[in-house]
Write a protein that binds this DNA or RNA. Structure first.
Length: 569
RNA sequence: CGGGGCGUGGCGCAGCCUGGUCAGCGCGCUUGGUUCGGGACCAAGAGGCCGGGGGUUCAAAUCCCCCCGCCCCGACCA
């Protein structure tokens, strides 16, 4: 490809509405343009990256035994009514009617459509297992699309669905996909982690998320270097503390203290000169509409997904100020667990607490030396606060590490949720009819592109991993009006193409600085600069990542690149 | 949805508070020339009618009302 013909409108300035690096850089470097909120044009450079990502996904999925299909993105409402998700998915789905007033939706995912296909065509255990996937557009009418490609309303996803005769085989395929995903992200040259995850909206009973590590990521994870435990903080378990032996012997007398206007944990801590770990935080939640009090150590935070799971609830939210008064008869900011009108559940972090501070149940007063078991009863100790850096691994007790990441893949064991709802059954070896056991496996293709940039960039621009770079190498003649430079550059370019490289030549008649800036911004892994020593047949090979430069004979550029790649660049 | 902010040539922004002398700056674009290893310089040009609608006024980018679009934030006091 010749740069003079390439549609890659680069910019010096970031768009005003971009916040994070991937959004700014993909726009500046001419990969994407916004059409409307959450909707993007993908320009040639972006399309090349997407296609390379898809290629790796296809190769690995095919190698893993999955088969590609192409399903409609326009879904009839009947299928979604059948699974019960027409209402559940609700506002997230883009719904519309055809000319006959029939209801349709643009598919946010495809369990219904694929299950419909399989239930109609597969009747016997002999036809199982089956793993079908597609790479296509998905639509989700996000409440708030943001961060460019990261959370868009239309995006490209690879979604796979597998069908099995029994649970054991579904689990076998689950781990097959786990390994496949690991290979996929490894091939893409991304630093990632597979973590235990919450199953969320899709349902099912077992799941892993694949996160690309990046500081700007919206997902948080903890992992253990000793035993390999890794989990999303929405899922990560606390190691259950022991009840301290003889704690009763330490109990002191409850003391009522005046704390005028002091409500926040930080304020209480400062005012009384007592660390936050010695203060009890009491929150009132509505768990599927029922008021429940949850106590947690003052310096810790409730992870609402864990809370929801602990109660097996659909919906969990904090009570409003008015609701707190109504349910407890106590003023917010000074809630006391003593004589509480609603059941008090306590996070694991409360177990070791002795002689702690709590609200007094009246305005402007707190209590010191409160103890659970003596002063109030805990309904049950539950694991609902967020696990963080340095805390003990729930498996082996070693200190956990914390990182942020971007969710690019998610695998689920679905069980029979959809097959039962939609009657996807087969006749087993023993002649009886059974629901198929399902799994589903997604990769956000467009999000992978954004995540790769989020993880790999510097002040100058993007630094693409070789495997998914829009071009592998760019040849830069510093001055196309000088014959020896132009001719040598053309020669090197043709040579690289012949050797199988995806090469670009910057044949534009602009100053060299301009070309260097563009090459860095676009992030092509290797730059071949043809300039000063063109007369001697020597060119300069620059590695985008790290900026290392080598002087190379013009005929040996390809070899040098291969050598560097083998060396792990 | 609630809260906050923004909308002015292709892009980034100033002007608005204190209506008129206001449509301006930088980048980009076109033409000519000089330049040519880290987003050059000089000169001459093209391009907006100020998100849309309504209103106030002798007069509106500027004041008022409505609408549309875009961006950011949204448990932690209990």
């Amino acid at each position: 490809m010749r740069f003079s013909r390439l549609f890659a409108p680069t910019k010096k300035e970031s768009p005003a509405d971009a916040e994070i690096p991937s959004h700014k850089l993909l726009t500046r470097a001419g990969f994407i343009r916004k059409v409307a909120s959450g909707l993007y044009d993908i320009l040639p450079l972006g399309a090349k990256v997407i296609l390379k990502i898809e290629k790796i996904v296809r190769e690995e999925m095919n190698a893993a035994g999955a088969q590609e299909v192409i399903l409609p993105i326009m879904h009839p409402s009947e299928l979604w009514q059948e699974s019960g998700r027409w209402e559940v998915y609700g506002k997230e789905m883009i719904k519309f009617k055809d000319r006959h007033e029939r209801d349709y939706a643009l598919g946010p995912t495809a369990e219904e459509v694929i299950t419909d296909l399989v239930r109609k065509e597969v009747k016997s255990y002999k036809e199982l297992p089956l793993n079908l996937y597609q790479i296509g557009r998905k639509f989700r009418d996000e409440i708030r699309p943001r961060f460019g490609l990261m959370r868009a309303r239309e995006f490209i996803m690879k979604d796979a669905y597998s069908f099995h005769a029994d649970d054991e085989d579904a689990e076998r395929e689950y781990w097959n996909m786990y390994e496949t995903y690991s290979r996929i992200f490894k091939r893409m040259g991304l630093e990632f982690k597979a973590v235990l995850a919450d199953t969320g909206e899709i349902g099912g009973n077992f799941s892993h998320e694949f996160l690309v590590i990046a500081d700007t990521g919206e997902s948080k994870l903890v992992y253990c270097e000793k035993c390999g435990y890794a989990a999303s903080t929405e899922k990560a378990a606390q190691r259950k503390p022991e009840v301290p032996k003889g704690r009763e012997t330490e109990f002191k007398e409850v003391e009522r203290v005046h704390t005028p206007g002091i409500k926040r944990i930080e304020e209480v801590s400062e005012f009384l000169g007592i660390p936050q770990e010695k203060i009890l935080k009491l929150l009132v939640y509505l768990v599927d509409g029922k008021p429940v009090a949850v106590a947690v150590r003052g310096d810790r935070e409730i992870e609402e997904t864990k809370l929801r799971n602990a109660f097996g609830a659909k919906d969990v939210r904090l009570a409003t100020d008015e609701e707190i008064e109504e349910f407890t008869g106590q003023p917010k900011g000074f809630l006391s667990p003593i004589g509480f009108k609603i059941p008090v559940y306590a996070d694991y972090s409360v177990i070791p607490m002795v002689n702690f501070v709590a609200g007094a149940g009246e305005v402007d007063y707190h209590l010191k030396n409160v103890n659970w078991g003596r002063d109030f009863e805990v309904e049950e100790f539950i694991d609902v606060s967020e696990v963080g850096e340095g805390e003990p691994c729930p498996e082996c007790g070693a200190p956990l590490k914390f990182k942020r990441g971007i969710e690019v893949g998610h695998i689920f064991k679905l069980g029979t949720k959809y097959s039962e709802a939609m009657g996807a059954t087969f006749v087993d070896e023993d002649g009886t009819e059974k629901p198929m056991v399902m799994g589903c496996y997604g990769i956000g293709i467009t999000r992978v592109m954004a995540a790769a940039v989020e993880q790999n960039h510097d002040e100058e621009g993007i630094i693409w991993p070789f495997e998914i770079a829009p071009f592998e190498v760019i040849v830069i003649p510093t001055n196309v009006k000088r014959d020896e430079i132009r001719e040598l550059a053309e020669e090197v370019y043709e040579n690289l193409k012949k050797k199988g490289f995806d090469a670009l030549i910057d044949d534009r008649n602009v100053r060299p600085g301009f070309k260097f800036k563009d090459a860095d911004l676009i992030g092509i892994p290797f730059q071949v600069i043809v300039g000063k020593k063109a007369g001697e047949g020597v060119v300069e090979l620059k590695v985008r990542k790290g900026g290392e430069r080598f002087e190379v004979e013009s005929g040996k550029v390809g070899e040098k690149i291969r050598e560097l790649l083998q060396g792990g660049i």
